[in-house]
Computed example of a mutant assay.
Amino acid sequence: MTSTSTPPGLARFNDLEERAARAALHEACASTAWVRRLLAARPYATPEGLYAASDAAMAELTPADLAEAMAGHPPIGRPRPGDPTSSREQAGMAGASDALKAEMLELNLAYQDRFGHVFLICATGRTGEQMRDAVKERIGNTPDQEREIVRTELGKINRIRLSRLVEEDA
């Protein structure tokens, strides 16, 4: 049992059966290695400890682990049907014009052709125009530069998702 000073959402996460905790973490990030590292470090005394463990696990992901994590993300502007998390995170594209949506689709495809994976950005709080500008800027990166940017963006996404996991009321 976790300490009574542990925030309720975090205590609930710490107390989950391993299978349920694994599933909850997998919802935050599709990397098996990341999930394994965060499970191994339970229980967490504070949300900050969980976020630090997430950052440390993200820093150690191999290119294959990063590819696995990215595979869990739909393209910007095309959240998976029935996926409220991606829809919420990509809300900046929801009200975008048809022209911007078409441009984003074209840019997503060009990016995917260049790098072999979806364009990944922490979309929370960004407008469609900001996401479009980011893909235009990043498409000129080298694969190594882009892999490290993706690692950083995944880390931001994971923190947001983990905060929702441990800070929500039951």
Rank of each mutant, 00 (worst) to 15 (best):
T32H: 15
V35Y: 06
A40L: 04
A41L: 13
A41K: 09
E48Y: 00
A52H: 10
S54M: 03
D55P: 00
A59W: 02
A59E: 13
A59Q: 10
E60L: 13
E60H: 11
L61T: 05
A67L: 02
E68V: 08
M70L: 13
M70P: 01
A71N: 10
H73F: 09
P81S: 09
G82M: 09
G82Y: 06
D83R: 00
D83L: 00
T85D: 14
S86G: 15
S87D: 02
S87F: 07
E89P: 06
A94Y: 00
A96H: 05
E103P: 01
L107M: 09
A110I: 01
Y111A: 04
Q112A: 07
F115C: 12
V118Q: 02
V118F: 08
V118T: 15
V118P: 05
I121Y: 05
C122Y: 15
C122I: 03
C122L: 10
A123G: 03
R126F: 11
G128I: 14
G128R: 09
E129C: 00
D133F: 05
D133L: 09
A134L: 05
V135L: 03
V135Q: 03
E137C: 02
I139L: 13
N141E: 01
D144H: 04
E146A: 06
R147E: 04
V150T: 06
G155Y: 15
S163N: 08
E167F: 10
